[in-house]
Design a protein around this nucleic acid. Structure first.
Lengths: 344, 344
DNA sequence: CTGAAAGCGCTAACAA
DNA sequence: TTGTTAGCGCTTTCAG
């Protein structure tokens, strides 16, 4: 059996092809088509198992109602991205369903962002694009290519975008502040900041570091340079614990680093939170498995996804860019890895 | 500036629109178009920033070179799916890039699989569909709807499919066998099987259980019914450790359950692997953070993704279904959570 | 070697 | 209230 087309339905129902179109595309009322005709055509369509061809409709209407998203390997840091991406994707799927979009085109991120690569997003398949922030440098380049393109673009997890691009990000600084504040409230005064690579490489991490600093400052704690550890190695963590005034808590700007620190602490026979408290950032899947339940800063992935899709739809619909930008709040999830410092 | 179309390029280069088409769609050689014309047209195209409209091409050629995948919330068990899906998606992206497909359409899974829902996959947008197995019952229903549809479909993580559907799965039974065999080789004789819900609910887990049983049998270990624990609760785990012959190792058919068990063991002050060994299944992201590094059965996600895409492309290309089916092998990843039993 | 013409399946003026 | 007609932007015979 060949594919059923609109003309077949028309013939079967004994009406013209345009009448079928009017009915099936929902403009029947506007054309004052009587109920019995509608009924007859509908019956024919379902009887024949007619499925409208989206490609033809898209060409004719010049709309696809489809949006795209660029994802890929080059996200950073790797493992965190892996786990956050899973949740992010699930969130996006929900958003897509909620907004009644047929689906979402996922594009693998190209290694090099040349102007030629951008062509794939402009070939008419999609009406707008979501760009999931990755390595900052790479990112900037890709986004800058969209600055002068007609395609609506919303970036996720960054705020450094061209004028024409919308974004959704979280308040990294406030999140980190909240986490460190929690440790201070528990009574900690010597709190280390342990990260896997220098803070300055990514705006996220710079902001998180600033939140840490701000919390210390407000609590009148004098920051000690030794507290800022770059590179998660056993000797470095050991050194933190052997300082004349050993730290009693560690804040890491992402959960994967927290996991690595937890493993090292385990090796060093330090108990969490008995001997030392540990707080992370991201609330990745399985954060509850890290260190027996990691206290961490939760990123509202569901909302991020939803907001991203909504903003993109708004941008497509002609809403001014400034209204298609959002910075969401994080929330602190207190689990088992943080407690008051041991008195001694 | 309006969108540049093929006719604009033709005018600019001083040739007809069909000549431009031949050159830009790669059939220039077949039409014996001289190099200088090709050159001229190419130059005009890039000068004008011409990007061919994919929708129009798709309509004309009746091909989209695009494949789809159904993903969604209803995966099972939830957390494992979350983390595996992230890796799966990354793998798919790589496969898509490797196979030179433009992108992949991701569809949110519908709550109800009625025949009407299937229409969305048959509207001409995609040439083939990947279905990621979820709740078994739901799954069967969805796949059965494709049994008589013209759309090529490849299911992932299941082998229970209609005749017309391809699949990619891993050998769950062999994987579990390997894991338990590892424990036996270490000297363990009393090995529990702890799962969160009954084994029979999903073929995966039934197969994993059978692998466990088989390993015990071959090692001449008599299985004790108390070893099979359903539901991860502290009392149940405690009971395992208080048996006259306490178990010395626990195998869980997925890493999330292993993580939960690890947390309970931690609470009970049992050391892993000092007091008890723990082995999981899946090798989810962050498995290295569970129990200080979880020994587990690795699912070759990269290969699964690649094979899924390859099989689907083959099926679209007319390869017989039987050749579009694959069962991949797992591999044991030995980390820190397994060691010989304590001698006493 | 190049171009004219037909048409992929559908929608939306415009007529009737 | 319904049908006729003209395309959407492209590819592909088929003539020239």
């Amino acid at each position: 059996m060949a594919i059923v087309k609109m003309r077949d339905v028309a013939a079967h129902a004994g009406v013209s092809i345009s009448t079928v179109s009017k009915i099936l595309s929902g403009s029947a009322a506007a054309h004052q088509i009587p109920a019995h005709t509608i009924e007859r055509v509908r019956r024919s369509a379902s009887q024949l198992g007619y499925i409208p061809n989206a490609v033809a409709r898209n060409l004719r209407t010049q709309r696809t109602r489809e949006i795209g998203i660029v994802l890929g390997q080059e996200t950073y840091p790797e493992a965190a991205a892996l786990t956050l991406d899973g949740a992010f994707l699930i969130g996006l799927m929900e958003a897509v369903a909620t907004c009644h979009l047929p689906g979402m085109v996922v594009y693998p991120r190209e290694r090099s962002s040349s102007i030629a690569d951008v062509a794939r997003y402009l070939d008419g398949r999609i009406e707008g694009l979501l760009v999931r922030s990755s390595t900052p440098h790479h990112e900037e380049l890709l986004l800058s290519l969209f600055a002068r393109s007609p395609l609506p673009v919303v970036a996720v997890w960054t705020q450094e975008v061209p004028d024409t691009v919308g974004f959704v990000d979280v308040d990294h600084r406030a999140g980190a502040y909240q986490a460190v504040r929690h440790l201070l409230d528990l009574g900690h005064r010597r709190i280390a900041y342990v990260e896997s690579s220098p803070v300055f490489e990514h705006p996220h991490f710079l902001a998180r570091y600033q939140g840490y600093e701000q919390a210390l400052r407000e609590a009148q704690v004098t920051f000690q340079p030794e507290w800022h550890v770059i590179g998660v190695e056993q000797e470095k963590i050991e050194r933190l614990l052997q300082l004349p005034d050993a730290v009693t808590a560690i804040f890491t700007p992402n959960d994967v680093t927290a996991g690595a620190v937890a493993t090292i602490l385990h090796t060093l026979h330090r108990r969490i939170p008995g001997d030392i408290s540990l707080v992370g950032f991201d609330d990745i899947a399985n954060a509850d498995l890290i260190a027996g339940g990691l206290t961490t800063v939760h990123q509202p992935i569901q909302e991020i996804s939803m907001q991203a899709v909504r903003n993109l739809i708004a941008l497509i619909g002609g809403t001014p860019v400034v209204e298609c930008r959002a910075v969401l709040s994080t929330s602190l999830i207190i689990r088992n890895s943080s407690a008051p410092p041991a008195t001694r």
